[in-house]
Nucleic acid binder design. Structure first.
Lengths: 187, 187
DNA sequence: GTCTATAGCTGGATAGAC
DNA sequence: GTCTATCCAGCTATAGAC
């Protein structure tokens, strides 16, 4: 395992934590370098395109994590829909409650959607949310309007993450998870 | 009507539009001054506390608008719950679809909730969302769990505004409004 | 690959003329 | 009240030694 690869991954993880907490525009390369105990210029060695390049790497890493570790749960044929959901809900709780800060995808969307960087960042985030909606839709099999229910679940969760940040109270997020349980989707 | 008051209001409105589109950290005093065709220093005459002070004024103006013009619809005794909701939904559509940009309250929450400015900004936004939840709860009278349903509606709408920004498609927001109709809250 | 040093610019904010 | 001029801190990014 080459040292380069390891270091770049470490920087990406640290950057993710900071972007998630403080947002893209309010996180400076100086903040990052101090959090990593390296000189600022080191970032420009690994991320030739500067801050934008770094953010792309971060967003793709987050999306990749969900694509590989979270969303595939929905296609596991050995699990019932209830089991799939409880496993996914557990993962989401670990991800969004384990550290301060909210959802980097939601925050970046709002920060960036009217800025020049949108052309680079938004496509990655769009894939992320499309995959998430598809994932949940797969768990709502049998419902005639499974697509709308899945979209609603994602919106509810995303709004819950926002109110969680606002009031410092995780119950908004947790309630959204409960409401999104496949057992509760009957109309 | 003194000239001072008028000018300050104009600056506040322009600032609101920019903050809503670009966010707090990515909007500079220079951006604002160019949008208003005045020198930068002019802002510091009206808003002694600088950018923070200006943002407080903006957030309070937005909150004030909803408190005076939107939320009172829910307590109008001449209207049925359906009528109340359709009037409120109409207002929300005018507010959130008439111009580019999303919800300044949601964006600011996520941008600021781990920054020093949170102590000044978040209380105003908290009042705004608490009033909104109360407002919708008042329309869900008769439902045993009206509070949870109202909270869900706010989260759904807020998530819808986010996906609207992300995909450039207002149907996420509009679907949330439809789902939040008091007629559809039976369990 | 990792560092120091610094360029070059833009940020928020202020002083002071008018 | 409104302007010009300016300060200084902070930013991204690069050059170049080691």
């Amino acid at each position: 395992m080459p040292a380069k690869k390891t270091s770049k991954e470490e920087l990406t993880v640290k950057a993710m934590q900071l972007f998630r907490k403080k947002g893209y525009f309010n996180t400076s390369i100086k903040d990052l370098s101090e959090a990593c105990n390296i000189p600022k210029s080191h970032f420009y060695y690994y991320f030739k395109g500067g801050k934008v390049d770094l953010m792309v790497e971060v967003l793709e890493a987050v999306r990749g994590y969900f694509t590989e570790r979270v969303f595939p749960i929905a296609t596991n044929v050995d699990l019932s829909n209830e089991e799939k959901w409880s496993k996914i809900a557990e993962k989401l709780q670990r991800i969004f409650l384990s550290q301060k800060g909210g959802c980097i995808m939601g925050l970046t969307t709002l920060e960036i959607s009217n800025a020049p960087e949108k052309d680079v960042f938004l496509p990655i985030i769009q894939s992320y949310f499309s995959e998430m909606i598809n994932c949940i839709e797969g768990i709502y099999t049998g419902q005639p309007n499974s697509r709308e229910l899945a979209t609603r679940a994602v919106q509810d969760i995303q709004g819950g993450l926002m109110l969680m940040q606002l009031y410092g109270d995780s119950s908004y997020f947790l309630s959204a998870l409960e409401r999104s349980h496949p057992n509760k989707q009957g109309i």
